[in-house]
Amino acid sequence: MSLKNILENWSHYRRAHEDGGHHEYEHMWGMAIDLNKCTGCNACSVACYAENNLPTVGKDRMRKGQGLHWLRMERYWDEPDLGGDEKEYQERGGSFLPMMCQQCNAATCEPVCPVAATYHTPDGLNAQVYNRCIGSRYCSNNCPYRLRYFNFYSYYEESWPEPLNMQLNPDLSVRDKGVMEKCTFCIQRIRTGKDAAQREGREVKDGDVVTACAQTCPTEAIVFGDLLDKDAQVTKLWKAQEVELGKTKQDKSNGELRGYRVLEGLNTDPCVMYMDRVREA
C-alpha cells in the first residue's frame, strides 16, 4: 500500500467489491459445505490443528476462551423451551455448523486493522500477515462471525515439548504471543499447488489444492475449490444452489434450494456456502 500505488491507481481502489474491488482476481477460493452430510465428528478441526500448527492450550484456558481453533464445530440444540418437546430434543440431537474463516470479499476485519496486517489477496483470500500484526485485536472485534483468534500466551513451549516439535508443519510458521490468526484456507497448500502447476506450465485445475479439512472430512461434506474455475466441483455446487457472490440475499423462492451464506445480510460477501440440513418435520 505505497503512496505512489494509491495515487496512480486511485479509481481502481474506489471500485466497490461487487465489481471485484481493486483486484484482478486470479482465483477466488471458496467452499461449499453440505450440512446434511456433516456428522459433527470434529475430524476437520483436528486436521486443521495438525496442518496449521495450532497449539493445544489446555482445558482451563480453553474454558476461559483463550484457545485457538481455526475451524470450530458449532453445536446448536433444539432446546425444549424454544419449541419441541423433551423427547424430540433428545431424538434429534444437535445440529452442527463447522465455521472457518469465511474469506469475505468485503471483509469487515480488513479496513479496521491499523497496520494493514490483514488484506485481500488476488487469490480472493483474506490474508493475515503475522509479522505485521501488532495485536490491537480490532479485527476480531469487528468480525461478525468471531472467527479470529488471538495468541494470548506464547503457547508453543507448552504445546509441543520435545520431541513433539518434530510434528510441526514446516510449511508455515508457529505464531508467538500477541498476534491474531485465523483460518487461511491452508494457504501453504494453495501455494504448493500453484507452484506445482507453474512448474508443469499449466493452469491450476480443480483438485490440485485441497484443504486439510476437506481432505479429512469422512463424509466429504466440505468441498473446496476455485469459484472462478467453471469446471470446479465447488462452482457447480454454488450454481446448483443458485448462490451468487456479491449479493446480500439469495433468492429463496425455490424450496428445493438449500444454499446460504452465514450472515450474508451484513454484506460481508463470504466465500463459504452452506447447504441447509434437511430434517423431518
Binding site: G65, Q66, Y153
Partner: peptide, 12 residues
C-alpha cells in the same frame, strides 16, 4: 502475553 488479563475470545 495478554492472557493473564483474562481477555478472551470474544472479549478482545
Amino acid at each position: 502475553g495478554m492472557g493473564p488479563s483474562d481477555l478472551n475470545w470474544p472479549h478482545m
